[in-house]
C-alpha cells in the first residue's frame, strides 16, 4: 500500500483510523485509514460491492464501525455529527413526495426562524438553477432535476461536510456532466468539504482534488492520489488533458489489479 502525502497544509477535516466493518462473519471493509482534507473534493472510488457505501454510512454516523474511529473536526463521531449533509443516490426515495420542492429544501431548517429559513431556501434553489420550480412536487420533475433538489436541500443546511453516495449513478450522461459541473462550481464558491463515493473512474478524476482508491472486499485503501488538475474544469479540455488521462489510467490499473488479485492484501 503506497500512500501519497497530501500537499495541502490544512488540517484534515475528517480522519479515518483503522475502520473495519463486518456483518457477522462477513468483513466488508478492513482497517481503512485515510485523511479527508478540508475545503476540498475527495472521492472514494472502488469496484462494485467494495463497501464504499458502508464506509460512507459509517462516516456519516448512520452506522457504527466494528473497529476504528472516525474523527470529524477533532471529535470522534458517534451518531450523525452537526454540520453534515448527505446526498443519496436514490433521489426519488430520499426526497419527500408529500412536500413541494421548497418544503423539501426547507426540511433540515425546521429550527430556524421563518425569515432566515426562506432566505436560505431561496438561495439554495437559486444555486442549483431551480428558480421558478419551487411549487412543483419532486415527482413532477426529471431525475436530474430531483437530484438538484436533493443537492439544494443539502446546501440549505450549510454543511461543513457534504457526503454524496453515488449521487449521479441514476441520471443520464448529459445530466450527469451538468450536475458534476454544478457541484464543482458550488464547492469552489462555498469552499465546503465534499466527500463523494463512486464506482465511476472518469467521474472520480474529474471531480476530485484527492482520490482514495479502495480494493475489492474486504476492502483496504489501495492508494490515495492528489489530483493536480487546474480549476475551473470542463468536460472537454480537462478530460483530454494528458494529466487527466494519466491519472485515469493509473486508477484504472489499480482497480483492475485489485480485482485480479482479489484485494491488495
Amino acid at each position: 500500500m503506497t500512500e501519497h502525502t497530501s500537499t495541502t497544509t490544512q488540517l484534515p477535516e475528517l480522519q479515518l483510523d483503522g475502520i473495519s466493518k463486518s456483518y457477522g462473519d462477513n468483513l466488508a471493509v478492513r482497517s481503512i485509514t485515510a485523511s479527508i482534507p478540508a475545503h476540498k473534493v475527495s472521492v472514494i472510488v472502488g469496484p462494485s460491492g467494495c463497501g464504499k457505501s458502508t464506509l460512507l454510512r459509517i462516516i456519516s454516523g448512520l452506522d457504527e464501525p466494528t473497529e476504528g474511529t472516525v474523527t470529524f473536526e477533532g471529535n470522534p463521531v458517534h451518531g450523525v455529527p452537526e454540520g453534515l449533509a448527505m446526498v443519496f443516490q436514490d433521489y426519488s426515495r430520499s426526497l419527500y413526495p408529500w412536500l413541494r420542492v421548497d418544503k423539501n429544501v426547507a426540511f433540515p431548517l425546521s429550527k430556524l426562524p421563518a425569515a432566515e429559513r426562506d432566505a436560505r431556501v431561496a438561495e439554495a434553489i437559486e444555486a442549483v438553477g431551480l428558480k421558478g420550480r419551487e411549487k412543483l412536487y419532486p415527482w413532477q420533475m426529471s431525475g436530474g432535476m430531483q437530484q438538484r433538489v436533493a443537492i439544494a436541500r443539502a446546501l440549505a443546511s450549510q454543511p461543513k461536510l457534504l457526503l454524496m453516495d453515488e449521487p449521479y449513478a441514476s441520471v443520464d450522461a448529459q445530466t450527469r456532466a451538468d450536475l458534476e459541473d454544478l457541484l464543482l462550481k458550488i464547492q469552489r464558491k462555498l469552499g465546503i468539504t465534499v466527500l463523494i463515493v463512486t464506482h465511476d473512474i472518469d467521474e472520480s478524476v474529474y471531480l476530485a482534488d484527492h482520490i482514495i482508491v479502495l480494493s475489492t472486499p474486504p476492502s483496504v485503501v489501495a492508494e490515495t492520489i492528489d489530483v493536480d488538475l487546474a480549476h475551473p474544469r470542463d468536460h472537454f479540455s480537462t478530460k483530454t488533458h494528458p494529466r487527466f488521462v494519466e491519472i485515469r489510467g493509473h486508477v484504472t490499473q489499480l482497480l483492475r489489479h485489485t480485482e485480479l488479485t482479489g484485494g491488495a492484501a
Binding site: S60, L62, V80, E82, L84, A85, M86, F88, D90, R93, S94, Y96, W98, F107, P108, S110, S157, L163
Partner: peptide
C-alpha cells in the same frame, strides 16, 4: 421508506421528529 428515514437522520432529526415528519406523513 428507509432512505427517506435515513435522510432525515442524516440531517440530525431526532427519532421522535422522524416519526412526526417522515413516518406519519408517509
Amino acid at each position: 421508506d428507509t432512505t427517506a428515514i435515513q435522510t432525515a437522520r442524516s440531517f440530525g432529526v431526532s427519532e421522535i421528529g422522524i416519526v412526526w415528519r417522515v413516518t406519519l406523513p408517509a
